[in-house]
Amino acid sequence: MDPMSSSAISGITGARWSKSSFSGGNEGQCVEFARTGNGTVPVRDSKSPHLTPLAFPAPSWSAFTSALRADSMPGPE
Rank of each mutant, 00 (worst) to 15 (best):
F64Y: 11
T36N: 14
R35H: 11
G28I: 03
C30Q: 03
G11L: 12
G37K: 12
S48Q: 14
F56G: 00
P53T: 01
W17V: 01
S5C: 10
D2T: 08
K47T: 04
F22K: 14
E77A: 13
V41Q: 01
G25T: 15
A58S: 10
K19S: 05
P3E: 02
G25F: 08
F64V: 02
G25D: 14
F64P: 03
W61F: 12
F22E: 14
L54V: 02
E32P: 02
I12G: 00
F22Q: 15
P3C: 03
G39P: 07
S46L: 03
S46D: 05
G37F: 07
F56R: 00
S6T: 06
P3V: 02
A34K: 02
M4T: 08
L51I: 06
A67H: 07
E32Q: 13
S7T: 14
S20I: 10
P53Q: 04
V41K: 01
S5H: 11
G75D: 13
R44W: 08
G24T: 14
S23Q: 06
G28S: 10
N26E: 15
S10A: 15
P59K: 11
P49S: 03
A34S: 06
A55M: 06
S5D: 15
T13V: 13
G24C: 07
G37N: 11
P3W: 01
H50P: 05
R16N: 10
P42T: 02
S48L: 12
G25P: 13
A55V: 10
S23P: 11
F33N: 00
E77R: 08
I9K: 06
T13Y: 10
G11M: 10
Q29T: 15
Q29D: 15
S18G: 04
P57W: 08
M73I: 15
R35Q: 13
M1C: 10
A63Q: 10
R16F: 09
P3Y: 01
S23E: 04
W61Y: 08
D2L: 08
T36K: 11
G11T: 07
R35C: 04
W17L: 04
V31G: 05
S18Q: 13
A55Q: 05
T65K: 05
Q29W: 09
S21R: 11
F64E: 02
P76W: 08
D71R: 12
G25R: 13
E77Y: 08
E32W: 00
P42F: 01
N38T: 14
V43W: 02
G24Q: 14
A15N: 04
T52D: 08
L54G: 00
T65S: 08
S46C: 05
S6Q: 12
V41E: 00
G39Y: 12
G24Y: 03
R44L: 04
V43T: 04
R35E: 12
N38K: 14
T52K: 07
D2C: 06
W17E: 01
I12T: 05
A67T: 11
G25W: 04
G28N: 05
P49D: 00
P57E: 15
F22C: 10
T36Y: 07
P76E: 11
P74F: 06
E77G: 10
